[in-house]
Nucleic acid binder design. Structure first.
Lengths: 342, 342
DNA sequence: TTGAAAGCGCTAACAC
DNA sequence: GTGTTAGCGCTTTCAA
């Protein structure tokens, strides 16, 4: 059995040229650069194009012009609201500049990156945006760098790369939120950290430690549990928190989901938030405003982050210089943080 | 000023062939179909490929083989959790079959579809998945149908198309949830509907009306407000609800976000959920479980929906028949629904 | 302003 | 088992 040749009866440039009685070059020009063709022929050609329903074949075009007007976005988890927001911003900006979007979804499996490295190498895209949050390159085999494509990283450091990056001021933002808690009188803190193979997880933890240091508190005394940014983690940590004595009066979770899970757990076990314990998160997801209490957090302007990153990439694609960008996350005080108990 | 020719020093098939001293055909075969080449040459070639870091150029390949192993997914709003979950499932399944994913993000602007129609027409993808929730084709100009590509729709009817579809049993699911409320003694209902240019919005509203009919209630008596599936809509509807007399004892919102926004509003205005009014949603998003009260809803298995759709498309791509699939959403009783007040 | 023609990098007949 | 070769559909130089 052999594969049948696809009938693919689509109309080609040649067909249009024949219909009109001009060369393919002229049709191509009429489409790409209308002014370079006499008004009369232009009209005939454009009419024919419309009538025939001609659309240029991109594979042929890509092969010839050596670019694709496509960008690869490598993202660790697409169903995460923060990423989804960022993606939205990326798409919006890319769109403005005529680029399309190919999703390289890692689905939290970093090894999948290899596949996308190959994709980049294969010329399928003109540039790549890395939001994999990966802390370090694997160190073996090919890396994204080998694709020698314009690239920008988002909350991620790429070792050995000179590619521009957009970062969020996680560390300072965490400082702010910890200070907010400190100002409310809290002295005993705990932290529910994010994954440690993850750039933001690390940055937020470091920010936490740093903040305590600045405030003259002994960071070594403060419990830190590690989660994976999921709701459930908040509940997993709960029991450990409950048995602490003296209990911390303020808990900083590295993202809102964990904060929410944690609040749910401790409320369920008789603690009031914020009267008994204040808990704060990070990200500023919309849902946090609909909780009872609403959660104090640091809001990341996701869409803008995405747009900034996309714009930086586009600039590179154009051969323009692109400087690093740092986006500011802003403290947003909700009801989940209050004065420490006397 | 003219564009400089990109130096694009990437290694080509020809280069590898020269290095090894065989023809390009042999290299091509060694890569595509290793058994068709003698073990010795195979090894030499594969070694050379690795050493040279050769990756086939996809544009050239696509042009030659007339397919791209790419699928276009047209989605109305990527930063919506439900879509994000579905997308995740689509990606997972597609991946299994060697297909990549191009996102056609409408960003709630239906007119953007034109762009993606052109993309489909241009041979950039082998098939398309439609999750735009659009109720009807625009009726003018080109439509997706013109691309004559394998296609499957997800919660969307494409007029004049014979393409298979995956649907969710929204109507029955709504019936179940309304019956659940009825069984709790509720007789006065209200509905916060989704957008009416939207397949699911319509289906859920129809389901609501239908359910009331089956239960022998007068649907015409029940207030229906329309929202756009956002949190805020719940709050917008709130005041109108408050001034009703007698007030409905049960409210069905067409999605969880609106239900959550509504709950927040009425709680804030002194009503207790579910003691004073029961409110239920649709979708079963994870956040709903962390609210106080947790919200009764209908859970859609997003990832499975996505996988089913992707699989149907892959089957078509292989030339196999693909039958319509209906996915069942399941009632999930939370704390936001309770007995009607006496 | 237009046309002829080369060739982008690859695959798949077909011949050996 | 391997090589030769003809394109896939397009853009773009170069010449007219």
């Amino acid at each position: 059995m052999r594969l049948v040749r696809k009938p693919k009866a689509s109309v080609r440039l040649t067909d249009v040229a024949k219909m009109v009685g001009v060369s393919t070059a002229t049709v191509s020009r009429a489409l790409a650069n209308p002014e370079s063709v006499s008004p009369a022929t232009r009209k005939t050609i454009l009419d024919a194009v419309r009538k025939a329903g001609y659309t240029p074949n991109v594979a042929a075009r890509n092969l010839r012009v050596r670019h694709t007007k496509m960008v690869l976005v490598v993202v660790s988890q697409i169903s995460n609201v923060v990423f989804a927001g960022v993606l939205s911003g990326i798409d919006e900006e890319l769109n403005l500049h005529g680029y399309g979007l190919i999703i390289g979804h890692l689905d939290n499996k970093p090894e999948r990156e290899d596949h996308f490295i190959k994709m980049a190498l294969s010329g399928a895209v003109d540039g790549v945006l890395l939001l994999s949050l990966r802390r370090l390159p694997q160190g073996h085999g090919l890396t994204m760098l080998d694709a020698r494509l314009p690239m920008v990283t988002l909350n991620e450091k790429l070792e050995g790369a000179n590619c521009p990056e957009v970062t969020v001021n996680d560390r300072q933002a965490v400082q702010q939120i910890v200070e907010h808690l400190y100002d409310l009188g809290h002295r005993r803190f705990a932290h529910i950290a994010g994954p440690d193979h993850n750039y933001t997880g690390l940055a937020r933890r470091a920010g936490f430690l740093e903040a305590l240091g600045h405030l003259g508190l002994d960071a070594a005394q403060m419990p830190i549990w590690q989660g994976h940014y999921s709701f459930e983690d908040g509940g997993v940590v709960g029991p450990q928190f409950m048995k602490l004595f003296p209990r911390p009066t303020a808990v900083f979770a590295a993202n809102d989901e964990m904060a929410i899970g944690f609040i749910k757990y401790i409320q369920h076990h008789g603690l009031r938030v914020p009267q008994d314990v204040s808990v704060v998160g990070f990200d500023g997801i919309a849902y946090a405003d609909y909780l009872n209490p609403t959660v104090t957090s640091v809001v990341q302007p996701c869409r803008e982050i995405g747009r900034a990153a996309a714009l930086m990439l586009v600039k590179q694609l154009r051969g323009e210089p692109a400087a690093d960008v740092e986006i500011k996350a802003a403290l947003k005080i909700g009801e989940s943080s209050g004065p420490a108990r006397a």
